[in-house]
Amino acid sequence: MMLRILLILASLTTPAAAQTLAQQNARMFEALDRVHNLSARELARIKEIFAASGVAGQGNPAISVHPLTPEQCAARIPGGPSSYDNARNRRICGDRYMAPLYDPATQRPEDAKACIDMFEFPNIPCTYPVVWIKAREAAQVCAAQGKRLCDAHEWEGACAGALTEPDYRFGAGSVAAMRSWHNNKYAPTKNWAYGSSYQRGVCAADSAKSPGCAGGGFGRCGSNTYPTGSFPGCVSALGVYDQHGNAAEHMNLPLAPDQMTSAGGMGVTEMKGSWFIFDKYRAHEDWCRWRAPYWHGSQVMSTGSHANYHLGFRCCKSVD
Rank of each mutant, 00 (worst) to 15 (best):
A187D: 15
Q199L: 11
K147F: 03
G195D: 04
A162H: 02
C203I: 02
P232R: 10
A162P: 09
A160Q: 02
F231Y: 14
S180I: 11
N183T: 09
A143R: 10
A143D: 12
K209H: 08
Y226Q: 11
Q199Y: 04
G173E: 07
D117F: 01
P227C: 09
S197Y: 08
R200S: 11
C150E: 04
D242C: 10
G195V: 06
M118A: 12
C159L: 06
P232A: 11
P166W: 07
F119Y: 08
P211D: 11
T225C: 05
N184A: 15
P122A: 07
T189Y: 10
T164K: 07
L238G: 03
L238S: 05
P125K: 10
T164V: 06
Y241D: 00
A193E: 04
G239Y: 02
A237I: 01
K185L: 12
H182L: 15
K190N: 15
F121P: 00
A208Y: 06
G239I: 10
V175L: 12
A193K: 00
M178H: 04
K147N: 08
S230H: 03
H244V: 15
T127H: 04
S210R: 00
N123W: 00
S180Q: 14
C142T: 15
D117K: 07
S207P: 06
K209G: 07
P125R: 06
R136F: 09
Y241K: 13
P227S: 11
C234A: 15
Y186N: 08
C234P: 07
R169P: 00
A187W: 08
Q243N: 09
Q140C: 12
C159A: 15
F231P: 04
I133E: 09
Y226R: 13
W192F: 15
M178Y: 01
